[in-house]
Each structure stands twice: as C-alpha cells, then as structure tokens.
Design a protein around this nucleic acid. Sequence first.
RNA 1: GCGGGCGUGAUGGAAUGGUAGACAUACCAGACUUAAAAUCUGUUGGGGCGUAGCCCCGUGUGGGUUCGAGUCCCACCGCCCGCACCA
Length: 849
Amino acid sequence: MPRYDAKTSEPRWQKAWDEAGTFTARRDDAKPKYYVLEMFPYPSGNLHIGHVRNYAMGDVVARYKLATGHAVLHPMGWDAFGLPAENAAQERKIHPGDWTYANIANMKAQFARLGLSLDWSREFATCDPEYYGQQQAMFLDFLEKGLVYRKNAVVNWDPVDMTVLANEQVEDGRGWRSGALVERRELTQWFFRISDYSDELLAALDTLDNWPDKVKTMQANWIGKSRGLQFAFGLVDGPDGHDRIEVYTTRPDTLMGASFVGISPDHPLAKQLEQDNPELAAFNAECRKMGTAEEELEKAEKRGFDTGLRVRHPFDTAWELPVYVANFILMDYGTGAIFGCPAHDARDLEFARKYDLPVASTFEPVEGDHTAPEDGGEAYVPPKSQPVKYVRGFAGDEVQTGDAAIDVAIAFCEANGVGQGVTKFRLRDWGLSRQRYWGCPIPVVHCDACGVVPEKKENLPVKLPEDVSFDTPGNPLDRHPTWRDVPCPSCGAPAKRETDTMDTFVDSSWYFARFTSPGATTPTDPVEAAYWMNVDQYIGGVEHAILHLLYARFYARAMNDCGHLPDAAREPFDALFTQGMVTHEIYMTKDASGRPVYHLPSDVTDGKLADGTKVEIIPSAKMSKSKKNVVDPVEIIDQYGADTARWFVLSDSPPERDVEWTAAGAEAASKHLARVWRIAEGASDAPETGSGDEELERERHKAIHDVTMGIESFGFNTSVARLYAFANTLSKSKAGRAAQVRAARTMAQLMAPMTPHLSEEIWRLLGGEGLIANAPWPQADESMLVEDEVTMPIQINGKRRAEITVPRDMAKDAVEARALETHAVQKALDGGSPKKVIVVPGRIVNVVV
RNA sequence: GCGGGCGUGAUGGAAUGGUAGACAUACCAGACUUAAAAUCUGUUGGGGCGUAGCCCCGUGUGGGUUCGAGUCCCACCGCCCGCACCA
C-alpha cells in the first residue's frame, strides 16, 4: 500500500469538489438553510496563518452543516479599499487598484490550496465598481431618509504634508512621514445617524443569545446609556452672550461636593474667551496640538486653565465656583462641560490637588476604615448599588444607595427648577468622510446655487478616476484636473463633486447581505435576502467586537428602513464566535549597541544560531513581520499539506483563545494524519473475524457523540483530542474487518470537516459511496453510550480517598451504604458516625466526619 | 486613563460547582534495525515515608462562599484586545 501523499491527493480532491459543484450554494426549500461567514480578509497579498485558523473554523462548521443536510451558503470576498494600497502606491509607484487586484489574485491562489468549502461564484471585492456603486445607491437612500448629514468634526492634521492623518499614522503626536507635530483641525464631514438607533442597538443585545457575553458587554458599555441631570450654572459677570454654562452629570447626588466647573477647549465659551485672552488662546492651542485619539487624551497629563470666571451654585447663590478650561473634557460628549467633584472622581481629584481646589466628600462608607479624600485619601467611588452614608446630601435619606440618591436628587432638582433628568448615550454619530482616494466616492455634488445635491442613481457608480498620482501627500481626487467637474444634477450648472470617500467600515457593514445576491442590480435581491439571511454563524477576531459589529448592526437596520433587507434581518448575525490569534515565539539577540535583532525560526536550532550564539526566546507573541516570527501557511502546505495545517490550527487551544504555532506541533499533526491513513489501511486488511466487535462499536458511537458535541459547541480542540483517542482505540482493536472498516469510515467522516482531503482518500479506500463531503453525518445511538456500571469517587471532607464501582442506577441510600463500608471511610470514622453524607448519583460521594 | 478578557505540569491544553492534569508535545526507557530515521510499547505534576502501598502539597497571589472551588465572589499582580481615521 502506498503512503498517503498530500501533494497529489489534495489537488485531486479540490478538483473533484469543484467539478461536482459541491460547495455551490443553492436555494432548496426542502432543506433548512445555513449561512456561515468568516470575516472577509483585507487583501494584503499573502495569507497569514491567522487566516488559516479563522477559515478552518468556518470550514468545519460549513462542512458539518452540509453533512447534516443543510443548504449551506459559505461565501468569500475581499475588504479591498483602505490605506495600505495608497501607501504602496506612494512607496512603489503602483496604482492602488493594480496593487489590490494583484494581491487578490495571489491570495486567492493560496486560498485554493487550503481546500475550503467556499462558494467562489459569489466572490467580489469591495473596490469593484459593481459593489461600491450599489453602496452609493444605498447612501442616496440613506440621505433621503435623513440617516446621513453633514457637520463639523476634528481630524488629525499634518501641517507639513498638508494632509489628514489616520490615528495609526500619528506616532507620539507626530505625523509618521513628516515628523511634524499633529494638530486637530475642524472639517465639514459626513455622518451616519447611528445615534438615532442607540436605544434599539442596546436593547437588542439581549436577544443575541448566541453571542459571547464579553462582546455584548463591550457593546453595551460603548453605547453607554446613562441617566443623569442636565442643568445650568449661572455665570457671574459672563462675557456677552454667555450667562450660563450647561452641564451634564451622571452623579447629581454629588452636587454639594462640587468644586469647580470644567469646559472643553472646544467649548463655545472657551473659543469666545480666547479672543481677548492670549494666555488662554495659547493654552487652547496647546490642547489642540494633540491627536484625536481618545486614548491619547485620557493618558495625557490633566491640565487646566483658570478663566477667572465664576459660576453660582444652584442651591447656594453665595457659593461661587471657578471655571476652568480642562484638556480632558470632550466637546463630543454631554454638553462639553462638567462640574468637578474631586471627592468622588479620581480624575477630578488629581485636577483639584494640582490646582489647589477644595475637596468635600458628599458621602462616606456606612462602616469600616475610611480615609476621606479631603484628608489625603483616594477618591471614594463605590458601585452605585452600594448603600453609603450621605454627609452632604441635599435630597433623600442619609443612608441609601447611589442609585436611589441619584433618583431623588433628579426629582429634587426638577422640583426646584434646577435642570431636568435626561438620558444620554456615549455613542456618537459615525463619521464616514475620509479625505482619501482609495475608497468609495460619496455620490453628491456641490453646487453654488443648489447646495449639496445627490447624484442621480442612473449616473452610478461614480467611479474613481484611474489617472491619479501619489507623488504628493493628500487626496488625489482634490487635485485631479477634471474628475471633480460635473454639471449639477439639479440645475445643470457647472458644479464640483464631493471628493471625500467613505470609511472602509461602510464597505464591511453590508457585504454579508450582498453575498446573498452578488450580481443583483439593486443592493440586494429581496427573495435571496429573505431566504439566506440571517448569517447563522459569523466568525472573526475579537478586535472587531465593537466597531465593525456595531456598525454592521446599525447598517442592517438602516437597510431594513430603506427596504433593502427584510424585517427579520434587522439583527443580521444570529450567532457570533470570536477566535483567538495564532502566536509564535520570537528569537532575539542584541547587537553591539544593545538594540534587539530578530531572527527567523528557520535560522534557529535548539535555541542557537548557526554560529552558536544563544538567542533569547520571547514566548507566545503576536506575529509581526518586524519581529520575524511570521509563519507562512504556503510553506507549511508545501511541506506537509493543507490538512496538516488545518488539523494543527484546530487542535490544542480552544478556538476562542490564542494558539501558539510550533514546528514540533506541525510535525506531530503531520505524523498523526499519516498514522490515521495507516490505521485505515490496517482496518481494510484486518482478518474477517476477531474479538471485541461490540466494544469497538460502542467506542465508535461514543466518538460520534463526543466529536459532534465538540463541533456543535465550538470546542474543536476537544473534538480533535477525542479523534486522537479514537484513533488509539481503533489501532489497538482486534475486532473483525467489518467492525474495523465501519469504525475507520466513521473516523474519516468525523475528521472530514477538519481534514477533508485525507478523509476523502480514506472514504474511497474503504468503499464509501460518492464524496465524503456529501455523505450524511453519522448518528450516535444513545443506547450505546451508557455503561451499566459507574465508578464513583468517595471523598472524605472533600478529598478523594477511595472509589467504588456500582450499577449505574443504584439507589442513593444503597450507594451511601456501600461508601460507608469502604476501608478508607471506616478508618476516617474510627468507630464514630459521619456528620453528613452527600451522594450525587452517578457522580460522587462526600462523607463529612 | 477607561472598557472587556485571560492566567492549570517542562510545553499546548482537558475538566455541566463533583476523581485536577483527558488528548498531544517534549523528555526518558524498551522493541524493531548493523546503525539511524520511521514505526510500535511503556513511564513522567512536586515533595515525603515504614515504597506491591500510603501521606502531604498543588490550577498567578491573598482572602471569602460551599459538604466540595481551576470553576462562584472580593482585592491585587501579570499579559492580551478595543478606545470611534489600521483593518
């Protein structure tokens, strides 16, 4: 018998599936449908081992669902717009489109070698005009529905390159290419009204039973629904047009501990005051010399500027508080102004101590040691559900929870004409404008006479011009000689096209819907969308837990409101799974000046370089080119075959956790698959009759049950472990040929979602009918799973001391009696009687002495 | 800084609140071989004792709940993800 040869076998089966159209999605009303989708990749040019893991997982689900009689949709495409293409254009003088499509061709060839059960007939790239044209059509529908609008917003501005930078392009507050200090600059930009859906997006999280709790929690926190009080402090001698400062607080119960009022540097009052206060103008300018990233703002040192203005406390007009401009207050959230209560907010306390402002606790712990913040202690911020003792309360009981105090404080303030209770959300509208070339053009025209005019749908797609150069920074659409010049769609007069393109998150917010009818001349086809939506299982990295998934959830709702998706698809992903990364060790030495030098795994043997230098090993690090710890899937496939790569990334680690790639692990996976082939051959050559047929049959059913459970619950690593164990059982079995062949065929079927090529080969060897990919999934017989006897551990005071083997259904008191008879229990009791005996039938006995 | 998560042998990990370490890697020993590779078999959490057996310790650290905690609660330490223009 020949050894199993992945090199010849894998392309053969890939061709067989292809020719049979095995994975082409077909609507079939006789079957339940199943839509499995992995987050589509950015076409960087090369498949990454992380992709292999992501797509191997989706493939397990897709192939399993096909075997269990579903009409499966398992498509693939390309998230093809974005910055890297423009960077490549700038660095290598190549058009972003040429670069992108070349990368797609490359990656598609690599994908093909993995043997994934994808329906390539539905493939598209988001940079295809057929795709982004439909996106433009939807943008116009959104515009008509009032879901899109324009307003001013700040961007990172590079004053040397005269261009807008992405947060990623800002390093330590400087532009990555120019090195110039980045400034915040206001531009008029397009926004989606995602905040109109805040309540719905939050409430609907409760219906997502098959989403990870952590993702739902993150989204809920991001949407950030809060209940609070909005009121105004009256200004003492405010400048013209300003007699009050509106503030929003979620802790109105701390109002009597207020110490100062802080406003954002971008607050209208701050902007007015800086007109004739050069010092403040300098301070504000300093604050604006920071990127727009919230993380940067939060980490920056808390700084303030005393405006000299004073406000009156609403409940004590004699009490005046200073007004500071503070760099940590965001104009985008609430009213852009707050009151600071240092005793109960760490940030406010840091600020108060820095500027020598008063600190006054409004509540204390009900009991226990407590160093008050005014006496040098830390800010006291207990959970709102915890009862505390109010010492400067102004409404309600002395002892109550923060939640209760907030309720009465709002009621009291409303009754006394101080503001009103309001609900606010942290979620901001989604700014979609990008001042870049390689994105979907926003289909509107600016006309001097008519203003902003939507492009006519029959003129779509508004295609990107091909003849652009990236010699100078900035948006090539802006400086293109003719592309901008168009007649106004409304009055026909000469007008200018919008040169902003759309955020690439827009592209990825509806691709899942487009996959249901990729060739439709409208964004979606109602019949196809109704049949295939929702995505039954969505799979991708946790890094997308908030933005991509929230935007997609919004988009599905907006599409539904515009008639592009059925009501049932408002919440588009029924189940979500977030998988972990593939990591690898880093091999590092240091050069003469102590700087790290990284080495490729292939240059390192037994922790040493070829010249004998010992390398430092940094374990489990995220793969990155600069650290030289990237594993190339193509090399692995060349060496071992796709099945080995797939088997490895599914084994060992639970799918939601990171998995470390090791050469030894890949070797082991490869050896095991070779062994499985030998075991299958051994089964086909086994003697006609043997012993233990019944036992092997029982093991076969247990394996079916366990492996199926593993797949159903996304525990692929446990399914793999179970298949190892079953292979061990089968290789040792002395059963007759029929039983062994049956077991080997089942093993091949259970492995088929993970190692489809090897499984097809075994299936053919053992006389399976047709393709294993189409064979119905094996069923476990429940009666074969249960043993007649169980072994139960006996614990004494919670520690295992003995075990007994009893009939599975033995009565509780009989089990107890048997347990008490054991030597260990007799010894522990020493003639006395037990205090308590806990018997959990079939599981455990615990004797308390 | 804020939000979320993770932490178990030498290593990856398993374990509906119920025998911690399944399965695999690595190591060691044995079989086969002139030899090696490949393959097959077996051992392996740490410590101790009167060593066919028995005892103690052990799931990042410290507390708590429970008959029983890797699992639940609190605090701390470390690492990872996200923070609205990377995708």
